[in-house]
Amino acid sequence: MAISREEFDLIRSFVHEHSGIQIGEGKEYLVENRLTVLMVQNGCKDFIELHKKLVADAGPLRAKVVDAMTTNETLWFRDASFFSAVSDFIVPQLMEKAARQPQVRIWSAACSTGQEPYSIAMLLDHARRKSRGQQAPPLEKFQILATDISPSVLVIAAAGRYNQLAISRGMREAFLERYFNKTGTMAYEVDPAIRKLVTFQQFNLKNSFDGLGPFDLILCRNVLIYFSNELKAEIYRKLHARLTPDGLLAIGASESPRGYTSNFEQVMVGGAALFRPKKGS
């Protein structure tokens, strides 16, 4: 029995309401594939009954549905041109900042299984090593907050353990050698010094950002594409409020805050487009 139009619409509006994520037209298979088990496990005969349960009960079932709908594949150093800009321009700027301020804060706002925040942490350490310690600020000056709406992916991220397939998705040979310890025959563990830089926390971007930051760099790449226009505008406003005056916002190559807020200006950094708060905004 395939999912009906009514069932699909109910579930996707629920997911949107509770996570901000929009499930596009034609994605019936995704709902069916990921949620049928929860439906059956909870004694529901169809998705209409599951929806009724979700509305009536704010308990763990809601979190499980959102979790099941938000698991995505991810890569190390995802988007080569962005990460060469990070390596060549942004990390040196952050190093300079760390030399003159007590802390440099970075936020990876949808970190999935941890590849993005660990990639940044490795580049910070790599830059320190390249400077051969001359005036290089200690690693402890950097704090990376890594959040995701899905608690399950955060378990994997915090463990910092990856298999050959995960490593093969973008990890550089030299970095693999330097920043991973092989455990057993099939897995690699991120070096404890790198793991120490990253704090993982479950967070829904729909929630208030009060108490977060301020951040010198926020990575929110390829996340807002799943959100409605109203929510995009709201999140851009909240991101703007959590950036330092000279902080940078990194979003996906196909994304722009234009049309949602006028508070950002685009800056080209080594061929990658980033955004910073407009002066006086």
Binding site: V37, K64, E73, S112, S152
Partner: peptide, 26 residues
């Protein structure tokens, strides 16, 4: 206790295993 269809992504399967073992966090 759980059901995963093939094909699956690595992340999807990893999270399903954790959920099935009550270690998923949700």
């Amino acid at each position: 206790v759980h059901y995963q269809t093939k094909p699956f992504s690595q992340e999807e399967m990893a999270t399903r295993i954790l959920e099935a073992m009550g270690m998923g966090g949700a």
